[in-house]
Protein backbone atom coordinates (compact mmCIF):
# COMPACT_ATOMS: atom_id res chain seq x y z
CA UNK A 1 0.00 0.00 0.00
CA UNK A 2 2.74 2.42 1.04
CA UNK A 3 4.76 1.38 -1.94
CA UNK A 4 1.97 2.18 -4.30
CA UNK A 5 1.34 5.48 -2.64
CA UNK A 6 5.01 6.34 -2.96
CA UNK A 7 5.07 5.25 -6.54
CA UNK A 8 2.07 7.20 -7.57
CA UNK A 9 2.29 10.95 -7.24
CA UNK A 10 -0.53 13.31 -7.99
CA UNK A 11 -1.22 11.89 -11.42
CA UNK A 12 -1.92 8.49 -9.90
CA UNK A 13 -4.29 9.92 -7.34
CA UNK A 14 -6.08 11.67 -10.10
CA UNK A 15 -6.57 8.44 -11.97
CA UNK A 16 -7.81 6.69 -8.83
CA UNK A 17 -10.34 9.42 -8.34
CA UNK A 18 -11.35 9.28 -11.93
CA UNK A 19 -11.50 5.52 -12.00
CA UNK A 20 -13.65 4.93 -8.97
CA UNK A 21 -14.95 7.97 -7.18
CA UNK A 22 -15.71 9.97 -10.28
CA UNK A 23 -17.42 7.00 -11.82
CA UNK A 24 -20.99 7.68 -12.75
CA UNK A 25 -22.29 4.81 -10.62
CA UNK A 26 -20.62 6.28 -7.54
CA UNK A 27 -22.22 9.65 -8.19
CA UNK A 28 -25.58 8.01 -8.74
CA UNK A 29 -25.13 6.14 -5.51
CA UNK A 30 -24.43 9.37 -3.71
CA UNK A 31 -27.59 10.84 -5.24
CA UNK A 32 -29.51 7.81 -3.99
CA UNK A 33 -28.26 8.36 -0.45
CA UNK A 34 -29.13 12.03 -0.66
CA UNK A 35 -32.61 11.16 -1.90
CA UNK A 36 -33.07 8.76 1.02
CA UNK A 37 -31.87 11.21 3.64
CA UNK A 38 -33.87 14.01 2.07
CA UNK A 39 -37.03 11.91 2.03
CA UNK A 40 -36.49 10.89 5.64
CA UNK A 41 -36.17 14.53 6.64
CA UNK A 42 -39.23 15.81 4.80
CA UNK A 43 -41.62 13.04 5.73
CA UNK A 44 -42.15 11.26 9.04
CA UNK A 45 -43.75 8.40 7.15
CA UNK A 46 -40.65 7.50 5.17
CA UNK A 47 -39.56 4.23 6.74
CA UNK A 48 -38.31 0.82 5.78
CA UNK A 49 -41.68 -0.94 5.56
CA UNK A 50 -42.99 1.94 3.53
CA UNK A 51 -40.07 1.77 1.11
CA UNK A 52 -40.47 -1.95 0.68
CA UNK A 53 -44.17 -1.52 -0.01
CA UNK A 54 -43.53 1.31 -2.43
CA UNK A 55 -41.15 -0.79 -4.50
CA UNK A 56 -44.27 -2.62 -5.69
CA UNK A 57 -45.39 0.57 -7.38
CA UNK A 58 -42.35 1.23 -9.50
CA UNK A 59 -40.93 -2.26 -9.97
CA UNK A 60 -43.28 -3.52 -12.67
CA UNK A 61 -41.80 -1.51 -15.51
CA UNK A 62 -38.21 -1.98 -14.37
CA UNK A 63 -38.00 -5.49 -15.76
CA UNK A 64 -37.76 -3.91 -19.19
CA UNK A 65 -34.95 -1.63 -18.06
CA UNK A 66 -32.41 -4.45 -18.41
CA UNK A 67 -32.99 -5.45 -22.03
CA UNK A 68 -33.62 -1.78 -22.87
CA UNK A 69 -30.15 -1.10 -21.51
CA UNK A 70 -28.85 -3.64 -24.02
CA UNK A 71 -30.76 -1.99 -26.85
CA UNK A 72 -29.38 1.41 -25.91
CA UNK A 73 -25.90 -0.04 -25.47
CA UNK A 74 -25.89 -1.06 -29.13
CA UNK A 75 -26.93 2.49 -29.96
CA UNK A 76 -30.57 1.77 -30.73
CA UNK A 77 -33.94 2.28 -29.11
CA UNK A 78 -37.24 0.47 -28.69
CA UNK A 79 -40.31 2.65 -28.29
CA UNK A 80 -42.83 -0.15 -28.68
CA UNK A 81 -42.32 -1.69 -25.22
CA UNK A 82 -45.35 -0.12 -23.52
CA UNK A 83 -47.61 -1.21 -26.37
CA UNK A 84 -46.09 -4.69 -26.15
CA UNK A 85 -46.95 -4.80 -22.44
CA UNK A 86 -50.52 -3.78 -23.23
CA UNK A 87 -50.97 -6.32 -26.01
CA UNK A 88 -49.45 -9.09 -23.92
CA UNK A 89 -51.63 -8.26 -20.94
CA UNK A 90 -54.74 -8.12 -23.11
CA UNK A 91 -53.91 -11.50 -24.63
CA UNK A 92 -53.46 -12.90 -21.14
CA UNK A 93 -56.85 -11.53 -20.12
CA UNK A 94 -58.84 -12.71 -23.13
CA UNK A 95 -57.24 -16.15 -23.06
CA UNK A 96 -58.23 -16.61 -19.44
CA UNK A 97 -61.71 -15.23 -20.04
CA UNK A 98 -62.19 -17.29 -23.20
CA UNK A 99 -64.20 -19.81 -21.22
CA UNK A 100 -63.75 -23.60 -21.19
CA UNK A 101 -61.72 -23.19 -18.02
CA UNK A 102 -58.43 -22.23 -19.57
CA UNK A 103 -55.87 -22.50 -16.76
CA UNK A 104 -54.23 -19.24 -15.75
CA UNK A 105 -50.80 -20.73 -16.38
CA UNK A 106 -51.68 -21.16 -20.04
CA UNK A 107 -52.93 -17.57 -20.19
CA UNK A 108 -49.66 -16.36 -18.68
CA UNK A 109 -47.65 -18.37 -21.17
CA UNK A 110 -49.70 -16.96 -24.04
CA UNK A 111 -49.10 -13.47 -22.69
CA UNK A 112 -45.36 -14.01 -22.54
CA UNK A 113 -45.43 -15.67 -25.95
CA UNK A 114 -47.25 -12.71 -27.47
CA UNK A 115 -44.79 -10.25 -26.02
CA UNK A 116 -41.81 -12.30 -27.16
CA UNK A 117 -43.32 -12.47 -30.64
CA UNK A 118 -43.76 -8.69 -30.67
CA UNK A 119 -40.11 -8.23 -29.80
CA UNK A 120 -39.11 -10.83 -32.38
CA UNK A 121 -41.08 -8.99 -35.08
CA UNK A 122 -39.29 -5.75 -34.22
CA UNK A 123 -35.98 -7.56 -34.44
CA UNK A 124 -36.90 -9.30 -37.67
CA UNK A 125 -37.91 -6.09 -39.45
CA UNK A 126 -34.82 -4.32 -38.18
CA UNK A 127 -32.43 -7.05 -39.25
CA UNK A 128 -34.07 -7.67 -42.62
CA UNK A 129 -34.07 -3.96 -43.41
CA UNK A 130 -30.83 -2.90 -41.83
CA UNK A 131 -31.04 0.66 -43.08
CA UNK A 132 -34.26 1.36 -41.17
CA UNK A 133 -33.88 3.28 -37.97
CA UNK A 134 -35.09 1.43 -34.86
CA UNK A 135 -36.89 4.54 -33.71
CA UNK A 136 -39.24 4.67 -36.69
CA UNK A 137 -39.82 0.93 -36.86
CA UNK A 138 -40.72 0.65 -33.19
CA UNK A 139 -42.79 3.82 -33.51
CA UNK A 140 -44.84 2.05 -36.17
CA UNK A 141 -45.06 -1.26 -34.33
CA UNK A 142 -46.06 0.63 -31.19
CA UNK A 143 -49.15 1.92 -32.97
CA UNK A 144 -49.77 -1.55 -34.39
CA UNK A 145 -49.45 -3.44 -31.10
CA UNK A 146 -51.54 -0.97 -29.12
CA UNK A 147 -54.01 -0.94 -32.02
CA UNK A 148 -54.26 -4.73 -31.93
CA UNK A 149 -54.95 -4.59 -28.21
CA UNK A 150 -57.88 -2.27 -28.97
CA UNK A 151 -59.09 -4.54 -31.76
CA UNK A 152 -59.08 -7.53 -29.41
CA UNK A 153 -60.66 -6.05 -26.32
CA UNK A 154 -62.46 -2.97 -27.73
CA UNK A 155 -63.98 -1.02 -24.83
CA UNK A 156 -64.10 -4.00 -22.49
CA UNK A 157 -61.92 -4.96 -19.57
CA UNK A 158 -60.77 -8.50 -18.94
CA UNK A 159 -60.17 -9.80 -15.47
CA UNK A 160 -61.55 -11.91 -12.63
CA UNK A 161 -58.27 -13.77 -12.47
CA UNK A 162 -57.78 -16.52 -9.86
CA UNK A 163 -56.81 -15.34 -6.40
CA UNK A 164 -53.26 -16.67 -6.52
CA UNK A 165 -52.48 -14.54 -9.54
CA UNK A 166 -52.56 -11.45 -7.33
CA UNK A 167 -49.50 -12.80 -5.55
CA UNK A 168 -47.24 -11.55 -8.37
CA UNK A 169 -48.05 -7.93 -7.76
CA UNK A 170 -49.10 -7.93 -4.13
CA UNK A 171 -47.59 -10.93 -2.40
CA UNK A 172 -44.54 -10.84 -0.20
CA UNK A 173 -42.15 -13.24 1.49
CA UNK A 174 -41.83 -11.98 5.02
CA UNK A 175 -41.66 -8.22 4.66
CA UNK A 176 -40.07 -8.38 1.22
CA UNK A 177 -42.43 -8.01 -1.76
CA UNK A 178 -42.31 -10.89 -4.21
CA UNK A 179 -41.84 -8.45 -7.09
CA UNK A 180 -38.69 -7.05 -5.45
CA UNK A 181 -37.24 -10.55 -5.13
CA UNK A 182 -37.95 -11.23 -8.80
CA UNK A 183 -36.35 -7.90 -9.64
CA UNK A 184 -33.19 -8.77 -7.72
CA UNK A 185 -32.98 -12.15 -9.45
CA UNK A 186 -33.37 -10.52 -12.87
CA UNK A 187 -30.84 -7.84 -11.94
CA UNK A 188 -28.27 -10.48 -11.02
CA UNK A 189 -28.90 -12.51 -14.17
CA UNK A 190 -28.70 -9.52 -16.49
CA UNK A 191 -25.65 -8.08 -14.77
CA UNK A 192 -23.92 -11.42 -15.27
CA UNK A 193 -25.00 -11.62 -18.91
CA UNK A 194 -23.83 -8.12 -19.71
CA UNK A 195 -20.61 -8.15 -17.70
CA UNK A 196 -19.43 -11.74 -17.75
CA UNK A 197 -20.51 -13.41 -20.97
CA UNK A 198 -19.36 -13.30 -24.56
CA UNK A 199 -22.80 -12.06 -25.48
CA UNK A 200 -22.36 -9.07 -23.19
CA UNK A 201 -18.98 -8.22 -24.67
CA UNK A 202 -20.50 -8.47 -28.13
CA UNK A 203 -23.11 -5.89 -27.14
CA UNK A 204 -20.43 -3.41 -26.13
CA UNK A 205 -18.42 -4.18 -29.27
CA UNK A 206 -21.40 -3.54 -31.52
CA UNK A 207 -22.22 -0.36 -29.66
CA UNK A 208 -18.69 0.95 -29.97
CA UNK A 209 -18.13 0.12 -33.60
CA UNK A 210 -20.66 -1.84 -35.56
CA UNK A 211 -18.59 -2.16 -38.73
CA UNK A 212 -15.46 -3.21 -36.91
CA UNK A 213 -17.32 -5.83 -34.90
CA UNK A 214 -18.91 -7.14 -38.07
CA UNK A 215 -15.47 -7.55 -39.63
CA UNK A 216 -14.14 -9.21 -36.51
CA UNK A 217 -16.69 -11.95 -36.96
CA UNK A 218 -19.47 -10.93 -34.60
CA UNK A 219 -22.89 -11.86 -35.92
CA UNK A 220 -24.31 -8.38 -35.48
CA UNK A 221 -27.76 -9.05 -36.90
CA UNK A 222 -28.22 -12.22 -34.88
CA UNK A 223 -27.26 -10.38 -31.71
CA UNK A 224 -29.70 -7.59 -32.49
CA UNK A 225 -32.49 -10.08 -33.14
CA UNK A 226 -31.82 -11.77 -29.79
CA UNK A 227 -31.80 -8.44 -27.95
CA UNK A 228 -35.10 -7.24 -29.41
CA UNK A 229 -36.70 -10.61 -28.70
CA UNK A 230 -35.42 -10.36 -25.15
CA UNK A 231 -37.04 -6.93 -24.82
CA UNK A 232 -40.31 -8.51 -25.87
CA UNK A 233 -39.90 -11.35 -23.40
CA UNK A 234 -39.23 -9.00 -20.49
CA UNK A 235 -42.18 -6.85 -21.55
CA UNK A 236 -44.19 -10.03 -21.09
CA UNK A 237 -42.83 -10.37 -17.55
CA UNK A 238 -43.79 -6.76 -16.86
CA UNK A 239 -47.25 -7.49 -18.24
CA UNK A 240 -47.70 -10.30 -15.69
CA UNK A 241 -46.82 -8.09 -12.74
CA UNK A 242 -48.79 -5.10 -13.98
CA UNK A 243 -51.88 -7.18 -14.76
CA UNK A 244 -51.64 -8.81 -11.36
CA UNK A 245 -51.37 -5.42 -9.67
CA UNK A 246 -54.49 -4.18 -11.41
CA UNK A 247 -56.24 -7.58 -11.28
CA UNK A 248 -57.69 -6.72 -14.66
CA UNK A 249 -56.56 -5.40 -18.00
CA UNK A 250 -57.54 -2.90 -20.66
CA UNK A 251 -55.95 -1.88 -23.96
CA UNK A 252 -54.82 1.44 -22.50
CA UNK A 253 -52.60 0.12 -19.70
CA UNK A 254 -48.88 0.91 -19.41
CA UNK A 255 -49.36 4.20 -21.23
CA UNK A 256 -46.07 6.15 -21.65
CA UNK A 257 -44.05 3.45 -19.89
CA UNK A 258 -41.46 3.58 -22.66
CA UNK A 259 -40.35 7.07 -21.71
CA UNK A 260 -40.05 6.18 -18.02
CA UNK A 261 -37.95 3.15 -18.92
CA UNK A 262 -35.69 5.04 -21.31
CA UNK A 263 -35.25 7.78 -18.69
CA UNK A 264 -34.10 5.26 -16.10
CA UNK A 265 -31.60 3.72 -18.50
CA UNK A 266 -30.04 7.00 -19.60
CA UNK A 267 -30.02 8.38 -16.07
CA UNK A 268 -28.04 5.27 -15.25
CA UNK A 269 -25.28 6.59 -17.49
CA UNK A 270 -25.93 4.40 -20.50
CA UNK A 271 -25.37 6.59 -23.50
CA UNK A 272 -27.86 6.59 -26.34
CA UNK A 273 -24.97 6.86 -28.76
CA UNK A 274 -24.06 3.32 -27.76
CA UNK A 275 -21.23 1.36 -26.20
CA UNK A 276 -20.96 3.30 -22.96
CA UNK A 277 -22.38 2.74 -19.51
CA UNK A 278 -22.95 0.03 -16.95
CA UNK A 279 -26.02 -1.89 -15.95
CA UNK A 280 -25.35 -1.13 -12.27
CA UNK A 281 -25.96 2.54 -13.00
CA UNK A 282 -29.36 1.76 -14.45
CA UNK A 283 -30.23 -0.33 -11.40
CA UNK A 284 -29.33 2.49 -9.01
CA UNK A 285 -31.27 5.01 -11.07
CA UNK A 286 -34.39 2.84 -10.87
CA UNK A 287 -34.30 3.32 -7.11
CA UNK A 288 -33.45 7.02 -7.35
CA UNK A 289 -36.47 7.78 -9.52
CA UNK A 290 -38.80 5.40 -7.68
CA UNK A 291 -37.90 6.50 -4.16
CA UNK A 292 -37.82 10.19 -5.07
CA UNK A 293 -41.34 9.92 -6.48
CA UNK A 294 -42.51 8.00 -3.43
CA UNK A 295 -40.86 10.37 -0.95
CA UNK A 296 -42.24 13.50 -2.58
CA UNK A 297 -45.58 11.77 -2.89
CA UNK A 298 -45.61 11.24 0.87
CA UNK A 299 -45.56 15.00 1.41
CA UNK A 300 -48.10 15.39 -1.39
CA UNK A 301 -45.98 17.47 -3.71
CA UNK A 302 -48.13 18.23 -6.73
CA UNK A 303 -47.48 15.96 -9.66
CA UNK A 304 -46.72 19.00 -11.80
CA UNK A 305 -43.78 19.99 -9.63
CA UNK A 306 -42.75 16.35 -9.53
CA UNK A 307 -42.65 16.28 -13.34
CA UNK A 308 -40.35 19.28 -13.35
CA UNK A 309 -38.09 17.78 -10.68
CA UNK A 310 -37.75 14.46 -12.53
CA UNK A 311 -37.07 16.27 -15.81
CA UNK A 312 -34.42 18.50 -14.30
CA UNK A 313 -32.85 15.57 -12.47
CA UNK A 314 -32.46 13.77 -15.78
CA UNK A 315 -30.97 16.71 -17.63
CA UNK A 316 -28.75 18.11 -14.89
CA UNK A 317 -27.34 14.77 -13.82
CA UNK A 318 -26.34 13.95 -17.36
CA UNK A 319 -25.01 17.42 -18.06
CA UNK A 320 -22.91 17.98 -14.94
CA UNK A 321 -20.07 15.56 -15.76
CA UNK A 322 -19.96 16.88 -19.33
CA UNK A 323 -19.66 20.47 -18.25
CA UNK A 324 -17.12 19.55 -15.58
CA UNK A 325 -15.18 17.71 -18.27
CA UNK A 326 -15.29 20.75 -20.51
CA UNK A 327 -13.94 22.98 -17.75
CA UNK A 328 -11.15 20.54 -17.09
CA UNK A 329 -10.38 20.38 -20.79
CA UNK A 330 -10.33 24.15 -21.01
CA UNK A 331 -7.95 24.36 -18.05
CA UNK A 332 -5.67 21.78 -19.61
CA UNK A 333 -5.64 23.73 -22.84
CA UNK A 334 -4.86 26.92 -21.01
CA UNK A 335 -2.02 25.30 -19.09
CA UNK A 336 -0.65 23.83 -22.28
CA UNK A 337 -0.86 27.22 -23.86
CA UNK A 338 0.95 28.82 -20.92
CA UNK A 339 3.67 26.19 -21.06
CA UNK A 340 4.15 26.75 -24.76
CA UNK A 341 4.33 30.48 -24.38
CA UNK A 342 6.91 30.08 -21.59
CA UNK A 343 8.97 27.83 -23.80
CA UNK A 344 8.76 30.31 -26.61
CA UNK A 345 10.12 32.98 -24.35
Amino acid sequence: MNKIAAKLPSAGQDSFVRKYLMRWEAILFLILIIVNVFNAIISPYYNFTGILGATRDFMDKTFIVFPMAMVILIGEIDISVAATVALSSVMMGVTYNAGNGVPMVVAILIGIGTATLCGFINGLVLTKFKELSPMIVTLATQTMYRGLAYVILEDQAAGSFPGWFQYFGWGSIGPVPFILICFVVCAVIFTLIINKTKFGRRIYAIGNNREASRFSGIKVEKTRLIIYTLVGFMAGITAIFLTSRMSSTRPNIALMYELDIISMVVLGGISTSGGKGRISGAIISIFIVGLLKYGLGLVNISSQVLMIIIGLLLVISVMTPNVAGKFKEARRQRMLHDKLSIQQK
Binding site: A54, M246, A254, L255, Y294, G297, L298, L306
Partner: peptide, 14 residues
Protein backbone atom coordinates in the same frame (compact mmCIF):
# COMPACT_ATOMS: atom_id res chain seq x y z
CA UNK B 1 -49.86 13.53 -13.80
CA UNK B 2 -51.46 11.13 -16.25
CA UNK B 3 -55.09 10.01 -16.23
CA UNK B 4 -54.13 6.37 -15.63
CA UNK B 5 -54.91 3.68 -13.08
CA UNK B 6 -51.17 3.01 -12.69
CA UNK B 7 -50.54 6.52 -11.35
CA UNK B 8 -53.52 6.25 -9.04
CA UNK B 9 -52.33 2.94 -7.58
CA UNK B 10 -48.97 4.52 -6.67
CA UNK B 11 -50.77 7.45 -5.08
CA UNK B 12 -53.00 5.15 -3.03
CA UNK B 13 -49.84 3.55 -1.63
CA UNK B 14 -48.54 6.99 -0.69
Amino acid sequence: ANPTAEDQIAMITE
